[in-house]
Design a protein around this nucleic acid. Structure first.
Lengths: 155, 155
DNA sequence: CCTCTATTGTTTACGGTTCAAGTAATTCTA
DNA sequence: TAGAATTACTTGAACCGTAAACAATAGAGG
């Protein structure tokens, strides 16, 4: 292999900022949520995506997609949420391979009580930390990166 | 608590892009590195930071800082790297509480062979995915967020 | 129909991370 | 200068995520 194109100083510092983000931010989100609501960030996402769906029902595969998780991870997490009776599962009538995850009343109560603190934290750490314009650019770049990651995954 | 300020549609999509990033990117980096070099991303970072230091020597606490990891995590990882003889440890002469992590020749060889592929992957997924200007903005925003996270941590 | 393949999800085993506790050296304080 | 507090790191246990194997259903092709 020929000598690779190394990163310029500015590229490198951006790259390090991103790697810093992906290693530190998950912990920051988890600790606020576990402290204030007894949920991991991923658990919160599962409940939140269910709550935002019309009737609190989503297929496992759809839920995995929405939460950016693998089906296996989701399966484990839903099992734990089921033990706390925040979610229940039933096999889908249309397609008996599929499973619906269903938000219980207790589950809805729990997310709704967790949401304000979480949103506030998202504001403090991110949304209110920069100008609206920079934030928009940041979001677009993030989406471009996610597209690349998805491409990679597909091969 | 009063009704929180919910996120606007654009803020929300940026937030979701960021959460997508922090849940998917680590796996993408890990899989390239383990496939091509038998290292996790964090292990790579440890070796890379050592290789970039003058003499391949850094205190554990400095290394933890540079790699965005906890001292505990680093300690476990260095223990594993030590078993593969990529790194060794010795207590620091100046301050006998401290430990120096030292890159071995085998360790240096390993990072150097892993680096080109990793940098190429960083380019494909991130650096070459957007314009230089957007990338710079992205980096600045990332750093601003990291500052907020660090503030949070200090309380 | 009937088989073969693809889809959907679960489960088990394993490895890694975190958290809490422990150890040892150093610095501060009275 | 003794004792207390702090710093620096390690360790063990509990927990979580991933990967691989498995099971069940659906669809497609002959």
């Amino acid at each position: 292999m020929s000598e690779p194109r190394w990163l310029s100083q500015e590229e490198r510092s951006t790259w390090l900022a991103l790697t810093g983000l992906i290693t530190k931010l998950p912990g920051a989100l988890d600790s606020q949520l576990t402290r204030d609501a007894g949920l991991s960030f991923y658990e919160y996402m599962v409940l939140a995506m269910l709550a935002e769906s019309d009737d609190g029902v989503l297929r496992m595969s759809a839920l995995a997609e929405l939460t950016n998780g693998s089906l296996s991870r989701l399966s484990h997490v839903v099992q734990r949420l089921e033990r706390q009776e925040l979610v229940r599962r039933e096999t889908c009538a249309d397609d008996r391979r599929a499973t619906n995850a269903i938000l219980t009343d207790a589950g809805r109560t729990r997310v709704e009580s967790a949401a304000p603190g979480h949103v506030q934290h998202a504001r403090t750490l991110v949304v209110d930390a920069v100008s609206a314009e920079d934030l928009a650019t940041f979001g677009r770049v993030g989406e471009a990166i996610l597209d690349r990651v998805a491409d990679q995954r597909r091969r």
